[in-house]
Design a protein around this nucleic acid. Structure first.
Lengths: 189, 189
DNA sequence: GACCTACCGTAGAGATGTCTACGGAGAATG
DNA sequence: CATTCTCCGTAGACATCTCTACGGTAGGTC
């Protein structure tokens, strides 16, 4: 179909987390049906024989990758925002910049598609999105919006950040100003 | 991985467009790597022998499906909005409801993932998104927003609609009120 | 130096998928 | 009624993928 991506040439031993990270890359680029043992192994410069030392089978890897995504990417953004000291609207602004800068939503699109055909992925995806919606709603409540207004603004923030990541906004050099303009619309009373 | 979807039981002759529509369904549910000749044929209650009468090969189908998506889904929404008679803010509201009601953004997520690993898909996807951004920017200019404000609001509208479709907002019974609340935030000066 | 553990490669069986070659059925046309 | 066009099924060559079985290697341990 298209160009084969970078391959690690330095033959080094890979950890279980190396396999998970490589899987997230493949997932993001080729979608869930592109996540093949041989494809990930090729990306790591290894073979499938090694894979089955770290994971029982492909299903085992997919289960692990779901939990890894939910925990690592959604979780630590929320923790950072909770620790933020400063005015509520600035906290929202900093969070929005962080999500784009760190590509925290990078695999989300592929996982959303995955969720269409897999019950486990759907459950995990819905749980993660619900958590984001609830947290962002709380952020806008702290800013002084009444619950219904806070809810729709929080919802828009989450969706906008996911969409801008999907559309590779970060590749544009002026992405911080675009985020600031999103922020201004959302925060304006 | 998961449940196999509905299969057309009545053995009827399929047109080229039937194959394209079935392909869009498979694309939406399984992603681009899930688009296999045998999978689409199974969904239509046919075999791969029939497929190669309508298409030269898989690549031919994929090329056609890209053009079909761009033309059919983005195009007619814009045409409808252009013909709308009424105040500019009502035109935006009607368009937003129409996009959700008709699932006009249904395959978008899968095509966005596809675009990560295929240059043709990337080109088509970017072209379609650009067209939506430009049109929605124009809608907000008609509403009286200055170009930079109209641009960010139009951008948010497009992204929000795509995101809500991805998250199956339409499955909620109260989706029209959620759209109205999105609309109110975007239209508010 | 013998041993053990962690990690990797190879070979191969079985499943699934692409695509070609070819033959057959039904509707439309003469 | 005969022919043609359109659409479809089957069979098979070839490729790719999952997963098992098993053997190999490098670094730490006694």
């Amino acid at each position: 179909m298209e160009a084969e991506p970078r391959i690690i040439e330095k033959r080094e031993k890979a950890s279980r987390e190396d396999w998970l990270l490589a899987t997230l890359d493949v997932l993001r680029e080729r979608g869930i049906e592109g996540v093949k043992v041989v494809a990930i192994a090729r990306r790591l410069g290894l073979t499938s024989g090694s894979f089955y030392w770290h994971f029982r089978n492909l299903k085992d890897l997919l289960d692990s990758v779901l939990l890894f995504w939910e925990d690592a990417l959604t979780g630590h953004i929320i923790e950072d925002a909770l620790q933020f000291q400063g005015p509520p609207e600035e906290r929202i602004r900093v969070l929005m910049h962080q999500v784009i800068r760190e590509d925290a939503s990078r695999p989300d699109g592929a996982i959303a598609v995955w969720a269409k055909s897999d019950a486990d992925a759907a459950q995990c995806y819905k749980r993660a999105i619900k958590r984001r919606f609830e947290f962002s709603t709380w952020l806008f409540q702290e800013l002084g919006f009444a619950p219904p207004d806070a809810e729709i603004r929080g919802r828009m923030m989450v969706i906008t950040l996911m969409g801008e990541t999907t559309n590779d906004l970060k590749q544009q050099e002026n992405w911080p100003s675009v985020i600031d303009r999103h922020w201004r619309v959302l925060v304006d009373k």
